[in-house]
Nucleic acid binder design. Structure first.
Lengths: 145, 145
DNA sequence: ACAATCTCCACTGGAGAACCGGAGTATACT
DNA sequence: AGTATACTCCGGTTCTCCAGTGGAGATTGT
């Protein structure tokens, strides 16, 4: 469960969309890219991907942009990374990687560890992240004073 | 926590060393490579790495080879992958990756997921894996009959 | 002395990640 | 209707890292 740039960008974008969700206005790629310091042409691809997976909706044309397709508490972090990282394709995997008992046993242990990590991410929603950010922001202001 | 070839090879090798541990004889790279179908010139580097981290001991010269440095129940899977994957160097990391609150919050969630996975791997010892392999092997024989 | 074996360092090839560019299309505003 | 503002699609480029290879040298048993 490495945190790739891709996933980080996607998370940041969705967090941004969650923040601007109060007014029904769509948010432009450019805005997100600027605020979160992400290459905009790259972000474009990621958002398109999220759209195809139904996590966000897009509005074309002037005054267009992106919107969350669901409420933030209905989107888990696991969903997001699975969209972005792509549920991996291994056609030869089932018969090639685990051909010996030793490899099977190792693979099994790994699956267990992976499931543990995925369980954590599944219990985190975008809402949780958003709330954490808010309270963290309050703290920072307090310290500043 | 992806399972890289590197880590898999290391696990397989250590499993092999654990198996041949009853007699005090060292095991050669060639043997391991042959039995587990690993490129031997590559395996060499991995074992050297494990040696530097104190997981195995090496015996040079003719009749040389590798031995486990500790008892199999004193070696956790977590230790092994940390050796192999290398406890990552991020000199710019601390000040570059987590500069905004948003990124910090995301990173935090990730750390949590990672810790969950690491906890699993920490509770697995080489011995556990070895025993599983043995019992699995018994099962396979039963089915064959 | 000699062969077997590990040790060290450097190199290559390929895959995928990160990123950029351009032409096209949908929408709002005037 | 026309124009500006966005997204959409498709392709290419650059760069990094993993997996694997090569060769010279050191160490040890026989």
């Amino acid at each position: 469960m490495e945190l790739s740039c891709k996933s980080e960008y996607a998370l940041l974008s969705l967090l941004e969309l969650a923040a601007h969700r109060s007014n029904g206005e769509p948010v432009q790629i450019r805005q997100i890219a600027l605020r979160q310091n992400i290459p905009d042409r790259y972000l474009e691809q990621l958002l398109a991907n999220l759209r195809r997976h139904g996590l966000v909706r897009s509005q074309r044309g002037a005054k267009g942009g992106y919107l969350l397709a669901r409420e933030p508490w209905r989107i888990t972090l696991l969903e997001i990374v699975d969209c972005i990282e792509g549920l991996s394709p291994q056609p030869p995997g089932s018969t090639q990687k685990v051909e010996t008992i030793e490899r099977a046993v190792i693979y099994e242990a790994w699956q267990e560890a992976n499931q543990a990590a995925r369980a954590i991410l599944k219990n985190y929603t975008l809402q949780d992240l958003y709330e954490r950010r808010e309270s963290q922001q309050q703290l920072d202001i307090m310290y500043y004073i």
